[in-house]
Nucleic acid binder design. Structure first.
Length: 310
DNA sequence: CACTTGACCTGTCCGC
DNA sequence: TGCGGACAGGTCAAGT
């Protein structure tokens, strides 16, 4: 579920709380979640200080003073949560996340049974423990991995990532070019492909297509220039709006401070089946496209399917 | 090559 | 109430 806005929110939270801290202790309960062996961890993670946090597509990169990095993919149910060391429990027994303010959160206790990796972080100057970073992941699809920083951009999947939709270089013309490789596919399937555009997932594809008045099943070759221009603008609007709202919490997502995202409160179609379209009052319908739950307004997003020619 | 589907997991919800 | 099955959706491998 974490897509670009959620991952960006987590990245900003990490910047706020863990930059400058050093890793004192590491524990992991699941090899899949964190496959590096003990030697690598001892040599390149323990004692290293965190110098920088960045994001590419849905990947979080935590750079270390050893010239290694932790790269993290949250996939569906991953969470990165930071708790100040002396703030685990307040008087009323609620966890105090991040800077110590009690936060209403989906999480009741830490660690819990979805906790896969625990990083104890200390001050780089004076050896005092400062906080604990928890990597939770109910479904174990997510992972973190320790790699030489220089090796990240050589990773196969990393090299294939398409452009970042919120960066200046991402123009309507670029979008048009990127779409050209997948002319016969449904636009939704293409937008979900990280090698075409980086960072979109199911929620924001549905939202963007509604905003641009495009049916998710419409094949790319049937999109005209104006539709692509609208789509380009819609993607940027939807993503920036969601980042401003701390992302979307469907069931699982929380940020580094344990907070849920607010985007879905104002979502236009996602999970709104049976409710009226904000533009035309027609009821939102749920269908399946690219084997994903897909939400559209049947009146705003029309596409008369051709008889398949095969 | 372009494109689609299934597998990876676990928790939740729905119908019987 | 218990239980089986569908569903959730990011990504890659395997299939058409």
């Amino acid at each position: 579920m974490p897509e670009l806005p959620e991952v960006e929110t987590v990245k900003r939270g990490l910047e706020k709380f863990v930059i400058g801290l050093s890793v004192r202790q590491v524990s992991s309960d699941n090899v899949k979640s964190f496959p590096n062996n003990e030697d690598e961890i001892k040599q390149f993670l323990l004692g290293a200080s965190i110098t920088k946090v960045s994001r590419r597509a849905k990947l979080i990169i935590i750079e270390l003073s050893t010239n290694y990095s932790l790269i993290i993919h949250l996939k569906m149910t991953g969470q990165l949560v930071f708790v100040g060391i002396d703030k685990h429990k307040s008087n009323d027994n609620t966890i105090r996340f991040g800077g110590g303010h009690p936060t209403k959160s989906l999480i009741k206790e830490l660690p819990d049974k979805s906790t896969r990796v625990i990083l104890t972080l200390k001050s780089t100057e004076n050896n005092v423990n400062v906080g604990i970073l928890y990597f939770n992941d109910q479904r174990k699809f997510g992972w973190m991995r320790l790699l030489p920083t220089s090796a990240i951009k050589e990773l196969q999947f990393y090299k294939k990532y398409g452009p970042e939709p919120l960066e200046n270089g991402f123009t309507a013309e670029i979008l048009k070019q990127r779409l050209r490789s997948r002319l016969r596919s449904a636009i939704k399937a293409v937008l979900l492909d990280q090698s075409v555009i980086a960072g979109l997932g199911n929620i924001y594809v549905d939202e963007s297509l509604w905003l641009a008045n495009i049916h998710p099943l419409k094949p790319v070759y049937l999109l005209n220039d104006q539709e692509i221009t609208f789509l380009h603008r819609a993607i940027q609007e939807v993503l920036s709006d969601s980042i401003a709202k701390g992302g979307s919490t469907d069931r699982n997502y929380i940020d580094v401070e344990g907070k849920v995202g607010q985007y879905l409160l104002t979502a236009k179609v996602f999970r709104r089946q049976g409710k009226p379209c904000y533009r035309c009052d027609q009821l939102i319908v749920k269908l399946k496209v690219a084997s994903r739950g897909t939400h559209i307004c049947p009146s705003c997003q029309t596409y008369i399917a051709e008889v398949p020619n095969r």
